[in-house]
C-alpha cells in the first residue's frame, strides 16, 4: 500500500510535466489552426471570373463611370468585414463624387427562398427573411450609389464567374474588367491591405487623366486588370445553380447566352 502511494507520489510530477507538454503542443496546434484558417482559400477556382462585362448579363453597365459588382452570400459572416472595408473605400472622404462607381450588390440566394417568401407559407417566412433581410444586406444598401440585386438561383452571379462571397469586380464604362478579387487580407479581418489599396487607386485614377506628351490632350492612363488569383476573396461559397462547375470566362459567357432559362434578377 505504502509503496503504491510512493509510486504515485513519485510519478505525479512526471504526469503533470507530460500533461503540460501535451497542453502546450495542443495550444500550438490551436494557434496554427486558427491562423491558417484566416488565410485559407476556399477550394474553388477563381480563374473563371469574367474578364469583361458579360454580354448576357441583365445588369446594366454604367455609361460614364465605373461599375463595381459586389458578389455576396447574404448569410456569410465573413463578408461583413469585406462590406465594412468597401464602405470605407467608397466613403466620400476618400473618393470625390465623380470617382464614385456605380455599385451593384449581387446577393445570390437559393431559388427556393424567393418562392417561399409568400405569405401563404407562414412556416417558411422566417427562413426566407433570413435570406432576404439579413444584416449584411442592410449594410450593403448603405453603400454609396449602391443597388442591391437579389440574384435568385445565382445565375447572374454565375455569369460574372464569381464563386466566393466578398468578390469585388470593377469594370470601366467600356466593360473592361479592372479589378477582381477580395478586398480583405484575411478571412473576416477588415483593415488596410494591398487589394483595398489597389482598388482605391483604380477608382482614383479614373478621374485623374494624365496629359499626353505628344498631343497635349488629356487621356486616361491605361489601368491594368488584376486577377482574383492575386487577391482572393475569403468567404462562403455563393448560391449558384445546381451543377454549376467552375468554368472559364468563355464558358460563363456561353452559359449566359440562354437568358430565357434564367429568372430576372430582382432589385431590392
Amino acid at each position: 500500500m505504502r509503496s503504491d502511494q510512493q509510486f504515485y507520489k513519485g510519478w505525479r510530477p512526471v504526469a503533470w510535466i507530460v500533461l503540460g507538454t501535451l497542453w502546450l503542443v495542443g495550444l500550438g496546434g490551436l494557434w496554427y489552426a486558427t491562423t491558417r484558417y484566416q488565410f485559407r482559400r476556399p477550394p474553388v477556382a477563381e480563374s473563371s471570373i469574367a474578364t469583361s462585362w458579360p454580354a448576357t448579363s441583365r445588369l446594366e453597365l454604367a455609361a460614364r463611370r465605373d461599375t463595381l459588382v459586389y458578389l455576396i452570400h447574404p448569410r456569410c459572416p465573413c463578408t461583413r468585414a469585406s462590406t465594412r472595408q468597401l464602405q470605407r473605400l467608397l466613403d466620400g472622404n476618400l473618393l470625390r463624387r465623380e470617382q464614385q462607381p456605380r455599385v451593384l450588390v449581387l446577393a445570390s440566394v437559393p431559388s427556393g427562398a424567393e418562392a417561399s417568401a409568400s405569405p401563404r407559407h407562414e412556416a417558411q417566412r422566417e427562413t426566407d427573411s433570413s435570406w432576404t433581410d439579413t444584416d449584411l444586406l442592410r449594410r450593403c444598401r448603405q453603400l454609396p450609389r449602391s443597388t442591391v440585386v437579389l440574384d435568385v438561383g445565382g445565375e447572374e452571379s454565375q455569369r460574372f464567374g464569381g464563386r466566393i462571397s466578398g468578390t469585388v469586380l470593377l469594370f470601366d464604362s467600356a466593360g473592361n474588367r479592372l479589378f477582381a478579387g477580395g478586398i480583405t487580407a484575411a478571412r473576416g479581418l477588415e483593415g488596410d491591405n494591398p487589394a483595398a489599396a489597389r482598388l482605391h487607386d483604380l477608382l482614383c485614377r479614373q478621374a485623374t487623366p494624365s496629359p499626353s506628351l505628344l498631343t497635349g490632350h488629356s487621356v486616361s492612363s491605361p489601368r491594368p486588370s488584376l486577377s482574383a488569383e492575386t487577391f482572393p476573396a475569403l468567404g462562403c461559397q455563393l448560391c449558384l445553380p445546381s451543377g454549376a462547375a467552375p468554368s472559364d470566362d468563355s464558358q460563363a459567357a456561353t452559359a449566359a447566352q440562354t437568358p430565357r432559362k434564367t429568372p430576372l434578377p430582382r432589385a431590392l
Partner: peptide, 28 residues
C-alpha cells in the same frame, strides 16, 4: 452570435469559429 454557420450555397454547416471556441477554449 457572430458566425454561427458557414455556407456553401444554400447548405450550411457549423462555422469553424464555433469549433475553435468550443475546442480551443476548452483546451485553453
Amino acid at each position: 452570435w457572430v458566425s454561427p454557420r458557414t455556407w456553401i450555397g444554400a447548405q450550411s454547416m457549423v462555422h469553424a469559429h464555433v469549433i475553435f471556441a468550443i475546442v480551443g477554449g476548452g483546451l485553453l
